[in-house]
Nucleic acid binder design. Structure first.
Length: 293
DNA sequence: GGTAGACCTGGACGC
DNA sequence: GCGTCCAGGTCTACC
């Protein structure tokens, strides 16, 4: 099986990235034992699955068939992005010192969040997490891939996440009916159209010079993206100064400090205010009483 | 600027 | 079975 190595900035813990949130469960990701697999559609149109596993210096990326030099460069760039191999978390780990609830985060080199190769895919998936159960999010993501994604010529069993063009070529009614995303269909289709037409360079936001509050506003201009979803996307981009506060966030904060009594977003903010630019990370990797994973 | 109500879906739950 | 509730929120209308 053809393979190559990618190094990571230290400290690096492969499983801490894979387990950083639920993305590994959303198609076209899958986990096979301790390997992370992803079906990608390269710029050439070739659809293939690559398998990522830990190595001494970072990760090993393997494919069933060989890649051209250009394809290998493309896959390398995408895997580096997906696992955030280059990011420096030393300031966060320094801030964690003296906080027992973040001792494991430091010890396990937590901080990196698994992300999709494109911001487009992560925005769509974030929309799929809103106002629903996680099981339904997984279903919607799987259907989006199986209904609209490109099938591989090399393996008809695998499909990639649909491109903006593929989503734009569909209709909101078709997306709602076949992908079962409900009221989210118009927002998903609209984003596909905007990106496919070239009217919205969503991927440019990956490296935007905008301040985090300005970038948050940009995300919130997207239909279907509110405060929770914008904060989630900022976390994915490595901007950690907003907390994605959803109903489960309220529940765990309530259990942690308020004996299960109802709390608001302000309670969450107050508890993590002191972490400043690391607020999102401190929240995300806190050792919650009710979540010892 | 703050808030109530509608919004798709499908799994869980009670009957 | 069947009906109801509600979840990893957002949007809009209204005050």
């Amino acid at each position: 099986m053809p393979s190559f190595e990618l190094s990571a900035r230290k400290p690096f813990n492969f499983l801490s990235v894979v387990d950083s949130h639920g993305w590994r469960q959303l198609a076209p990701f899958r986990v096979d034992e301790d390997n992370l697999c992803y079906v990608d559609r390269l710029s050439s149109g070739r659809v293939l699955e690559y398998r990522i596993s830990k190595s001494a210096d970072g990760v090993t990326v393997s494919t069933k068939k060989s890649l051209s030099a250009a394809e290998r460069r493309e896959v390398s760039d995408r895997v580096r992005w997906m696992l955030n191999l280059e990011m420096d978390f030393s300031a966060f780990y320094a801030a964690c010192k003296g906080e027992p609830k973040l001792a494991r985060a430091r010890k396990l080199a937590r901080g990196r969040l698994l992300r999709s190769p494109t911001l487009f895919e992560d925005v769509i998936k974030t929309i799929l997490t809103t106002n629903t159960l996680w099981a339904a999010t997984k279903n919607m993501s799987a259907k989006l891939v199986s209904v609209l994604g490109s099938v591989s010529d090399e393996d008809p069993e695998i499909r990639a996440f649909p491109t903006p063009e593929q989503i734009a070529a569909s209709t909101p009614a078709e997306i709602q009916e076949k992908v079962r995303v409900g009221y989210r269909a118009p927002a998903i289709h609209e984003l596909g159209v905007r990106v496919a037409s070239g009217g919205f360079d969503l991927e440019a936001l990956k490296t935007s010079p905008l301040s985090t509050p300005e970038l948050r506003k940009e995300f919130m201009k997207i239909n279907g993206i509110g405060p929770y979803a914008a904060a989630n996307l900022l976390m994915i981009l490595g901007r950690h100064d907003f907390i994605p506060i959803d109903s489960s966030a309220l529940a765990i904060v309530s259990a942690e400090w308020y004996r299960g009594k109802p709390v608001t977003a302000e309670h969450v903010e107050r508890r993590f205010k002191k972490w400043g630019a690391h607020k999102g990370l401190a929240f995300w990797f806190w050792d919650w009483k009710d979540n010892q994973s």
